[in-house]
Design a protein around this nucleic acid. Structure first.
Length: 673
DNA sequence: GCACCTCGAGTTCA
DNA sequence: CTCGAGGTGC
């Protein structure tokens, strides 16, 4: 063979590679992006195989920018955590048209009467929600949702998805974030499962598990083989954009694939028509879906409506009914929580429901067991609420054999053996539904508290297992001890290396500084969770002020009533809690004062809100007042500067008249802002 | 005193 | 997610 032959040969190989690349790209385009199932997988597979073997023989033709090289990264040890610039919220669900009407009612109540708005409906894909960051038109980072605040960096895996553009089509804004669903078609899932079955691996139960599993592959090459797809559903920009509908148009122009089934509706009846229409095609739809997302189309109104907990009010997900299964309750165990509450837990014969094997479910409290009429050994119907949390729906009484045993709440705490009791609820002498362990030093309670504490301080390196180990080894007796740990304390323990000890110490050091609000939350004061802690922090500003506040001063804050104010007040009179706080400070915890309220135009004024403030959700009005230096109180007194009366004002309106406090109409209030 | 909305706390599986 | 319980308005 002459040298020329070799060159000729090489050039034809190169031509073939170019052709293969073009053909594969075209097929992928059809398969993924246009979603036309005309392409046969066999053709696609054989072409890919040929390309791979040619490139193996001729590595000199490898091209970094070629489609097959979307895979850039090396396998990772673990995913980096990334903080979302804008929190990734979740959706509230509705399961019936009735609940949808209820949502409509709530929304309309919060919006001005005369405002006109539309609804936007789109299909809810059943995949994995991800966030994509683009800088100067280039894809720079992709992350999972995580807890909404912090997700995992899966950039390299996302790069392997063809329908995620690496560069945007111009014109594009300098910086933007796209949110959407990484998913797998039903067809791809079938193919994947066929391969898995051949190799004796476990099968994926649904497209979401498969998508999530694929993106969690640490090696991007493995993720690439899964042929994932992407649909965008939201875009976050600095620039104003009028409606959700326009967002979708913009996403398309930038080069994203957006779900085809979407519609702008003028009223809820039209929304229901959309839901019904989609329900018919859902079984034959190419992708797994679990419902329809409905939102208020106008962005300005969306912002007005505000957020409740983890979900914005302007949108809901209509969910189609979940899959159910039957199983046997083998036993009922009892768990001890941080507050000492005893929660019964049903242990099942492991059963497959909606894609995962379920082996237990909470029964919440003894009353719930009573309501269900549940006995140990019963056959029960279960489902996964929201497709995640197992729930016992009913007992199949006809399946009883007579051997079932009635469940009895233990008389002593299962963890420490001490007495248990029901708590007094409210000022009346009523008793709580739940039982509590009365032992202040119950080890289970203590452990749950430690877990809560590190979670609120966001000390990610230290989870339940490590805490338990530290406790068992005698390194810590309370949460404050965490901050006085030293590297040598940890590194000498078995299974802890030098490196992991260092990581843990570094993390703890970094998280010593904490906002006043989170600090309060971490203390685990009865009735004080995330929200109430923030309310307290904003209203009192510093630990010193709150700890000296009278019970009345605390009670005056909006959303804080007698039960909470008493619990907070008592907490700060308790010697051991004060000693604990002192110990935390001594060990290096720094409490940052709550956002110093800049002396704005409202400084020194106290507002009381009553009735529905149209055009603005209550907490937004509150935020605006606080941002301008004002205070929001729950009750009218002679110290109140203004009462803002919305629609249907309550008794505070007459209180204000009696005390001669100036009453502002909504319009007057808005003018002051 | 009741209806409604929120919040707190415990919870599942991969 | 789900329950109980607290807060608020009427």
């Amino acid at each position: 063979m002459s040298a020329t032959d070799l060159v000729m040969d090489k050039s034809s190989v190169y031509k073939r590679i170019i052709n293969l690349r073009a053909e594969i790209a075209r097929l992928r385009e059809e398969y993924h992006i246009k979603n036309t199932p005309s392409v046969t997988d066999d053709v696609y597979d054989s072409l890919s195989r040929e390309l791979r073997s040619l490139l193996k023989a001729h590595p000199e033709f490898a091209d970094q920018s070629a489609p097959e090289n979307r895979v850039a990264g090396k396998p990772l040890d673990k995913f980096k955590k990334v903080k979302h610039k804008v929190r990734m919220l979740s959706l509230n669900d509705v399961f019936s048209y009735e609940e949808l009407y209820d949502w409509e009612k709530r929304v309309k109540k919060l919006l001005p009467l005369d405002v006109k708005f539309s609804y936007f409906c789109e299909v809810k894909f059943d995949g994995l929600a991800v966030s994509l960051i683009y800088e100067k038109g280039k894809f720079v980072r992709g992350a999972t949702r995580g807890d909404g605040f912090i997700g995992e960096d899966i950039t390299e895996n996302l790069k392997t998805i063809y329908s995620i553009p690496l560069s945007l089509l111009p014109p594009y804004p300098k910086y933007l974030e796209v949110r959407g669903e990484a998913l797998l078609s039903k067809k791809t899932l079938e193919k994947l499962n066929k391969e898995n079955a051949k190799e004796g691996k476990t099968l994926f139960a649904n497209t979401r598990n498969a998508a999530a599993g694929s993106l969690r592959q640490l090696d991007p090459k493995l993720a690439a083989e899964r042929q994932l797809d992407f649909r965008a559903w939201d875009i976050i920009l600095k620039e104003d954009i009028k409606s959700h509908w326009e967002k979708h148009q913009l996403l398309r122009k930038l080069g994203f694939k957006v779900g085809d089934d979407e519609e702008r509706c003028q009223n809820i009846s039209e929304v229901i028509l959309f839901i019904k229409k989609f329900e018919k095609i859902r079984p034959d739809f190419s992708y797994g879906t679990d419902g329809v997302v409905i939102c208020i189309d106008e962005t300005s109104l969306q912002n007005t409506l505000g957020i409740v907990g983890k979900a914005p009010r302007y949108t809901v997900a209509f969910k189609y009914p979940a899959e159910r299964a039957t199983t046997i309750v083998k036993d009922i165990m009892v768990n001890v929580g941080r507050t000492g509450v005893l929660t019964p837990l049903a242990i099942f014969e492991p059963t497959l429901v909606a894609g995962s094997t379920v082996s237990k479910a909470t029964l919440h409290n003894p009353d719930q067991i009573e309501r269900l009429g549940l006995k140990i050994g019963d056959t029960v119907v279960i489902e996964k609420a929201g497709d995640v949390i197992p729930k016992v729906l009913e007992v199949l009484v006809s399946m009883r054999t007579g051997k079932e045993k009635k469940f009895k709440m233990p008389e002593r705490c299962p963890a420490c053996g001490e007495k248990i009791e029901k708590k007094e609820v409210s000022e009346k002498k009523e008793k709580s539904v739940a039982y509590y362990c009365a032992n202040k030093k119950c080890p289970a309670k203590n452990e749950r508290y430690l877990e809560h504490f590190v979670a609120v301080f966001e000390i990610y390196e230290v989870g339940p297992k490590i805490l338990r180990r530290f406790k068992d080894e005698g390194l810590i007796t309370d949460a404050a001890d965490i901050f006085s740990l030293e590297k040598s304390d940890i590194s000498i323990l078995e299974r802890f290396g030098d490196k992991s000890a260092e990581n843990i110490i570094e993390e703890i050091k970094m998280k010593r500084k904490i906002s006043f609000g989170r600090f309060l939350w971490a203390l685990g004061i009865l009735h004080v969770g995330e929200e109430t802690a923030r309310d307290l922090a904003i209203n009192f500003g510093s630990f010193e002020k709150l700890s000296k506040a009278s019970i009345e001063e605390i009670n005056d804050i909006e959303n804080i009533g007698p039960a909470v104010s008493q619990s907070v007040y008592e907490f700060f009179r308790d010697k051991s809690s004060l000693a604990f706080i002192e110990k935390l400070k001594k060990n290096g915890v720094v409490i940052e004062k709550a956002e110093k309220i800049k002396s704005g135009k409202f400084s020194g004024m106290t507002f009381v809100l009553t009735g529905t403030i149209a055009g603005m959700a209550r907490e937004i009005a509150k935020e605006r007042i606080i941002a301008n230096g004002g205070k929001v109180s729950g009750s009218v007194s002679k110290n109140t500067s203004y009462v803002v009366a919305g629609k249907d004002p309550g008794s505070k309106y007459t209180d204000a008249q009696k005390l001669g406090v100036k009453i502002l109409s909504e319009a007057e209030f808005l003018k002051m802002l």
